[in-house]
Simulated assay, not measured.
Amino acid sequence: MDISHSIRVATPKDQVFTLYADVASWPTWDSELVDAYLPAFVQGASGWLKPRQGPKAKIKLVAIEQDASFIVESALPLCRVRFGHALTEEDGQTRVTHWVSFSGALAPLFRSLIARGIARGLPDTLEGLKHACEAKAQVA
């Protein structure tokens, strides 16, 4: 794991996971995204992300554990970037951790080119997720 950031959210894990499963809504709480698409939130599904900066990126949901975690992978030339999302219960709240790892022959190059920007964006992304989850819980 090259980059990691966590936040506590005052909603149960299943409610956070429900928001994750609504891929089309990701740009509403992740300020780094313009658009996102997966045909289904199931392991093996392929789609794409359009970040605010940079080209549209193909993604694949490579691992999923209901109400607990999922990993999305994107391929760059001779490099794989994994974006992990993990949920754990903690004192009646949910600890949400997002992490990013780089692997492959050109991982050091891509890490030096994009890791800093990803690391800068993670706190805002998690704050957006926290706000969306807690606002949705108040409405329910």
Rank of each mutant, 00 (worst) to 15 (best):
T28M: 09
T11W: 03
F41I: 02
K56N: 00
V16L: 00
L49F: 05
D22C: 06
M1W: 03
W48G: 00
G54S: 13
W29D: 05
G54N: 13
V23F: 12
P12W: 04
V34L: 13
L49K: 00
P55R: 07
Q15D: 04
S4P: 04
S6Q: 09
L19Q: 03
L38P: 05
T18Y: 00
W26G: 08
P27L: 07
W48K: 02
D14E: 12
P51T: 11
R52H: 13
G54M: 13
P55N: 08
I7N: 02
P12Q: 08
D2H: 15
V42W: 00
D2R: 09
V16M: 01
L19G: 02
S25K: 13
Q53V: 15
L38Y: 09
S46I: 08
D35K: 13
K58D: 05
V16W: 05
T11S: 13
K13F: 03
A57G: 08
A10V: 12
L49G: 01
L33E: 04
V16K: 03
P27H: 09
V42L: 09
F41W: 00
P55W: 01
A24I: 12
I7W: 01
S31C: 01
A45W: 05
K60L: 01
S25H: 05
I59W: 01
A24F: 10
T18V: 07
W29S: 07
P39I: 09
V42G: 02
R52M: 14
Q43S: 11
A24Q: 14
P12N: 08
P12G: 05
L19F: 02
P39Y: 02
I59A: 05
Y20N: 03
W26F: 15
H5Y: 15
F41L: 02
K13V: 04
P39G: 03
P55D: 10
Q43E: 15
K60W: 00
